[in-house]
Every structure is written in structure tokens, then in C-alpha cells.
Design a protein around this nucleic acid. Structure first.
Ligand code: FES
Ligand code: FES
Lengths: 143, 143
DNA sequence: TAAATAAAGGAGTTTTTTATCTTTTTTATG
DNA sequence: CATAAAAAAGATAAAAAACTCCTTTATTTA
């Protein structure tokens, strides 16, 4: 929940690609799909979209594939999430009211404002590069 | 996000019914739908389901409708959420891995464990009855 | 007991999300 | 320049979620 399936895959894919990217290695759709155990054609669409949104980079042809350039490495997961799911996670009302507002707060407003800020903080506080560095991430993504 | 649409409606409906229920008033599907601004037939199904799960009570026939008995009033929103969306909100991995586990934690595990606990706490800490009491809730549910 | 009221139940439809398949374009290299 | 590798693009398809409509059952009351 919290994130859409596409967004979950996207986060995992970005971390995976970033990890490979540290040594300048580009990865193909096939590798990503295997690496994070996601449907091949589905992740293809997601990567294509992330690439268009400039969250990740890609090159066609032999030796091509997906990678992250220096700038992309400095992004945070918040950027990925916003690209995939928009800002509803951070801005939307927990009870589905049209707007989350201070002036007409729903019964869960105060509590969930904090929760959403904490989600935002969690996603902001670490760069993609940092996730890529961790060695711990390997056994996690591949299952 | 966080909750399904059905769950959002359910929470709003339960609070609405509880509020009316304080003075022993039973409410019809129609009233609930208007009160919380939700699709009539959709909320009908939801109320039917909540009733079967004994989250709310109902009686058929003239002067019938939905209400909350004393026991139901003492429940928390956690009960409503679990009835509607299951425990994925509280238990599921943020990145969609099959299990959220300490032994194979995903890169977001530590942060999101806390977030999910905070969500659980928020939903547990107030009884339905308390939400019903607040006068502030009225302008919130009806839009 | 007939009529009216209100929820329960059953059977759809529509929309959105998730997933698959095929063709086209780009690029490197022999 | 031909071939192969790889992503981009386009077109469906399947599944799930959201939403609707119609019929049945239970209950009250005139
Ligand atoms: S109004 Fe519902 S969370 Fe702010
Ligand atoms: S393993 Fe992902 S949140 Fe625990």
C-alpha cells in the first residue's frame, strides 16, 4: 500500500541500477527484471518512463542500457516517488477528502500530517548514491 | 493512498453513523451517502460488509438503519481499517517484498517500520466514540 | 394482512492498474 | 554497410478496484 506497485518496482529498480552504475556498468531491462524479480515487460515500461522523466539515464544499441549519471545519483527516493505516484502520498487527505487543509481538517488530519511528513523525510534524507553504496541491499532486492 | 477508497469511505461512514448514534438515531444508506458525500450504491455495499463483520450494527424495516451499539463504539479505527484493507498497511513491506522481515530488511525497512507503527498507533489511540463526540467532525465529513 | 420501508444479496459495468506482446528506432561494431 | 543489440513506442490484454442496478428478505405499522 502507501506506494503503487509501479512505484515499488521503480524504487527497487533505481537502487539496483544505481548499485551497478557505481562501476560504470550499464544494465539491460532483462538484468533489471531479474535483479529485482519483477515482470520483464512491466519494468521495461517503468524504466522507459523514468528515463523520459530523467530520473535515470539510458542509451540504445550494443553496450547500451540503463544507468545513473552523477546528478541522478544525488537525487533522493522522493524524486522517484513523485515521478511515479505524484505528491498524493505527501499532500493528500488520509480520508480522501478533496483537499487536506488546516481550515477544514478531517478527524485524522493532525496525526497524518505528521506521518506524511515522516514519510517525506525518510525518502528525502538519503540519496540514491547512498543506497547504492550499502552492501546490504544486494540480498534484499533479489529474491 | 495509504487506505483504499473503500476504506476511506468506511472510516468516514463509521464516524458519521457513530455521531448520529449518540442520540440513538439510526441512519439509512441514503443519509450516510449524503452525509459523507459518497456514491450511494457503493457505500451500501461497504455498510453491508461492515455490518456482517460486526463493525457496525443494522436493522431492517421502517425505522431501521445503521447504528453502533455500546461495544462497537469502543472499537478503534484500526478495527475498521483491518476489516476493509487487512493488515497490509501495518505489516507489509514498503517496497512490496513478499515479507517485511528483520532478517532480510529492504533499504527502507527501519524507517517504514516506525512509520507503520505510528499509523497503527494513531488509529488505535482514539475510540470511535471519541470521534463521534467531537463537534468539529461535522463540517469535515459533509462537503 | 397489505403496504411501505429499509437492509441484504446477487449480478453486472466501468475505470484504473498491472502486465504482455509486437514493431520501430537508435547505435555500436565487424 | 549489414548485422546485432538494446531501448522506445504502440497496441492489447488481464486483473483488480470502484461503482451501479435490480431483486429479495425482513420488519414495522396502518
Ligand atoms: S484533512 Fe484529512 S489529512 Fe488533512
Ligand atoms: S522489509 Fe521492506 S519494510 Fe520491512
Amino acid at each position: 500500500m502507501i506506494f503503487s506497485k509501479s512505484c515499488e518496482y521503480a524504487i527497487r529498480a533505481v537502487i539496483y541500477i544505481a548499485h551497478q552504475s557505481r562501476n560504470g556498468k550499464k544494465v539491460s531491462i532483462r538484468e533489471v527484471a531479474q535483479g529485482i524479480d519483477s515482470p520483464l515487460h512491466f519494468i521495461a515500461k517503468i524504466l522507459q518512463y523514468l528515463s523520459k522523466r530523467n530520473i535515470i539515464q539510458s542509451t540504445k544499441g550494443p553496450n547500451g542500457g540503463f544507468y545513473l549519471d552523477k546528478r541522478a545519483m544525488k537525487q533522493t527516493l522522493e524524486d522517484v516517488v513523485i515521478a511515479m505516484d505524484g505528491d498524493q502520498v505527501f499532500e493528500g487527505c488520509a480520508l480522501g477528502l478533496r483537499y487536506c487543509s488546516e481550515s477544514r481538517p478531517c478527524p485524522l488530519h493532525e496525526e497524518f500530517k505528521q506521518i506524511r511528513e515522516q514519510i517525506r523525510y525518510s525518502l528525502q534524507s538519503t540519496t540514491i548514491a547512498q543506497f547504492a553504496e550499502e552492501d546490504a541491499h544486494k540480498p534484499i532486492l533479489k529474491r
